[in-house]
Design a protein around this nucleic acid. Structure first.
Lengths: 334, 334
DNA sequence: GACCAAACCTAGAACGTTATAGAAGCGAGG
DNA sequence: CCTCGCTTCTATAACGTTCTAGGTTTGGTC
C-alpha cells in the first residue's frame, strides 16, 4: 500500500548536490566557503541550496570535523545578572567563531544535569556561571573538557571573576568618606562569593579602624533574604549604612526599610553589588558595585578558547567600579 | 619529534568496547539499556564505561537514529517570566524523553538567529516563547520543522496561550466589585499580546457599562515604560484603579506612584499580569493575573510532541486566575 | 548425539558531513 | 607529442553512534 506524502525529510547536502549536478564533495566546499570551486559552480550550488532551504546539519558537521565550534554555558535563569553576562558571551563567542549552547540550572534542574547536557551536546569547552558545586566535581569535569568558572574562583579550574574584595572596599571607602562609622554588612549566606565579600568587608572596616563597629547580618542572594535581614536590624543603635551582598538582596532590604518608615538614603545609606538592570530602574536608584560584564564575558570566552589550545589554567580578576546613584548620603546628624 | 601527552580524546564507545572485551554493538546495547545483553556483559561494559568516564556523543547518536530527541526553546533572557516557563518545560520535556536546547534572544541576538541556531542544533521541534517576528517567518519555519508558539497566538502555527481576555476581565470584574468606576489600563505598547489585552479591557469596561470611563495609557513591557506611563496620569480626575499590561510594567508604575506620594492601594488600586516571582516579593505584594505556568509549559511540550506524530495545528488557551495580594482595595471615599 | 529454539553476541551498513588523495581538463614549454 | 603545473572537480574514507541481519552459544528433548 503506497500512501500519500512521505514524511518531509530535511534536505541534505546530497540533495543539493544532485539538484545542482555536482558531487557532494564540491557542494560541501561551496557551502563552507572553502577554496577550490569555480565561480560558476558556486553560483549553481548556492542557488540549489537556497531553493531547497538547505541548512547544514551541525551535528554531522561536528561529528566529522573534530572541532564542533560549540561553547557551552551553564547559567541560572533566576539570576538577571547571568542574563546580562550571557548576552555579552554570545557577542564574544561569535567574534571567535563559536556557537553557544545554553543550559539552565533551576529548581527542577541540578547543576550537574545542566553541565552533563552541555558535554553531551558536544561542546568543546564549557563556561559555568557561578557554579555552586564542589570544586572536585568541576575539576573532574575539567579533565574531560576545558571548564571556565565565571564569577567564582575555583581552585585548579580556570576562573574569571570580579575582584570582589576591591569592590567591597570601594563601597566601604565611599561610605566612610560620607561620614559613616556604623556600617553593617548583609552577607550572601551560603551563596557563591559570599564569604569573600564578607571577609573583604571586615578587612575594609578594620583598615579604617572601624573594626569595633563591624556587624555582619545573615542574608542571602535574593529579595526574600534581604527582607528577612532587614528585620534583624536593631531599632536603636542601628547602623547608618549598609553594604549588601548583591542588588537583589539589597532590594529586599530597601523594600522592608521603606515599609518600616526608614527613608533611604535619609536615615540609611545603602550600596548593592552587581549593578543589575534592576538597580538602575526600580525604586530609588541603588548605588552599586558594578561588575564589568563585558570584560568578564569576553575574558571567559577568551580563556575557554585558550584552554583549547592547551594553555594553562589561572585566575583572571577584573576590577569593579562603584556606581553612585541615590541610595547613599551623609549620615543623619545625631 | 614525538611530544609528550597526546591531546586527551574524549572516550568513545569503541574504547569502552575494547576495554571490556566486547563488540561495539554490544556496548551500544548496554549503554542505551536495550535488551539482548547478558547480566554479566552488562556489568562489564558499565564498569568500563564508568572507569573511562564515557558519555555517549549525542550528536553521533542523533545522526544515526533519526530521532534526535532534541526540543529547542527560544526565549528572552530579559524576561523573568520566561525563566519560570523554561523551568517547567525542562520538567515536562524530561517526562516525554526530550532533551531541551535553549537559545536566547537579546539586545545582541535577534530572534531569527536564535531560531536558526535551534534548527542547526538538530532540534526535532521548537517552542518559541512570545515570538515577536512575523507570522509569515514562523509559518515558513514551521514548514521545515514543527514550531509551537508559546504565549502568543500566531495564525497557522501551533499556539499555546493564556486566555488573556479572560484574565483581564477577571481583573476588571474584581475592581468593579470593590466599587471602582474609573479604571484605566496601561497597555503594553508594541509588545506581544498588548493589543489583545487592551481590547479585552475595553470590552470588559463596556460590559460593566463603564465604557465612558475607559482610558488607555500608552505603556510597554518593562519597568521603564511603567514609570513613564505613571507620569501621564492626570493629577485631578485620576482613575482610582489601574489594570496594567504586566507585572514589570506595574512595578514601574507602582514605584513612580509611591515616590509621588500616592499610596497603593490607599489612593490607587492596581492589578498586574503574569504573577511573576517578582509580584510576590517586591514592594507591596502585587495582585496579578496568574498564568498557569505549568499547564502552559506541559501543553507546549505536548503539542510539539503531537506535531511530530503528524497531528494538525491548533490553538490551546489556558484559563488564568486572579491572585489577590495587597495592591487592591475599595476606592477612597470622595 | 542430533536437533531446535532461545538467548546472546557481532559484522557491517547506514546517518550527513568534512578531509584527503587523486583524476580530469587544459594551456604552456620543451 | 610528452610532460609539467595549475585549477577544478570527484571518489572514498573517516567521525561515533544505532540498527539490521545474521552468527554463535547454550541447554533442553528426543
Amino acid at each position: 500500500m503506497t500512501t500519500g506524502t512521505p514524511p518531509p525529510r530535511r534536505p541534505t547536502l546530497a540533495d543539493v548536490a544532485r539538484k545542482s549536478g555536482v558531487s557532494v564533495a564540491l557542494a560541501s566546499i561551496v557551502m563552507r566557503g572553502a577554496e577550490g570551486a569555480s565561480a560558476s559552480s558556486r553560483a549553481k550550488v548556492k542557488a540549489a541550496a537556497a531553493e531547497l532551504g538547505y541548512r547544514p546539519d551541525s551535528r554531522a558537521r561536528a561529528l566529522r570535523s573534530l572541532r564542533s565550534g560549540l561553547l557551552g554555558v551553564s547559567l541560572s535563569l533566576a539570576e538577571p545578572f547571568h542574563a546580562d553576562l550571557v548576552d555579552e558571551i554570545y557577542a564574544a563567542a561569535e567574534l571567535r567563531g563559536f556557537d553557544v549552547v545554553l543550559s539552565a540550572t533551576g529548581p527542577r534542574r541540578s547543576e550537574t544535569r545542566s553541565l552533563e547536557a552541555l558535554t553531551d551536546a558536544g561542546c568543546e569547552a564549557v563556561i559555568a556561571i557561578a557554579p555552586a558545586g564542589g570544586a572536585a566535581a568541576l575539576a573532574a569535569m575539567d579533565a574531560r573538557l576545558p571548564v571556565v568558572s565565571l564569577l567564582r574562583a575555583v581552585p585548579s579550574v580556570e576562573s574569571v571573576c570580579t575582584d570582589d574584595a576591591a569592590g567591597i572596599r570601594q563601597a566601604v571607602d565611599h561610605l566612610v568618606g560620607l561620614g559613616h562609622r556604623h556600617i553593617a554588612h548583609v552577607d550572601g549566606g551560603t551563596a557563591v562569593a559570599s564569604a569573600e565579600r564578607r571577609d573583604a568587608y571586615l578587612g575594609a572596616m578594620a583598615a579604617h579602624d572601624l573594626g569595633r563597629h563591624a556587624t555582619v547580618l545573615p542574608g542571602g542572594p535574593d529579595e526574600k533574604a534581604g527582607t528577612a535581614a532587614a528585620a534583624l536590624l536593631p531599632g536603636a543603635r542601628r547602623p547608618t549604612a549598609l553594604v549588601v551582598f548583591n542588588d537583589r538582596c539589597a532590594l529586599g532590604v530597601l523594600d522592608a526599610l521603606e515599609r518600616g518608615g526608614v527613608p533611604v538614603p535619609g536615615s540609611m545609606s545603602m550600596v548593592g553589588f552587581d549593578d543589575s538592570q534592576f538597580a538602575r530602574l526600580a525604586h530609588i536608584g541603588l548605588s552599586s558595585v558594578r561588575q564589568d560584564v563585558e570584560a568578564l564575558a569576553s575574558s571567559a570566552v577568551e580563556r575557554a578558547a585558550a584552554r583549547l589550545t592547551g594553555e594553562p589554567a589561572g585566575l583572571r580578576e577584573h576590577a569593579p567600579s562603584l556606581v553612585l546613584r541615590n541610595s547613599t548620603a551623609a549620615p543623619p546628624a545625631t
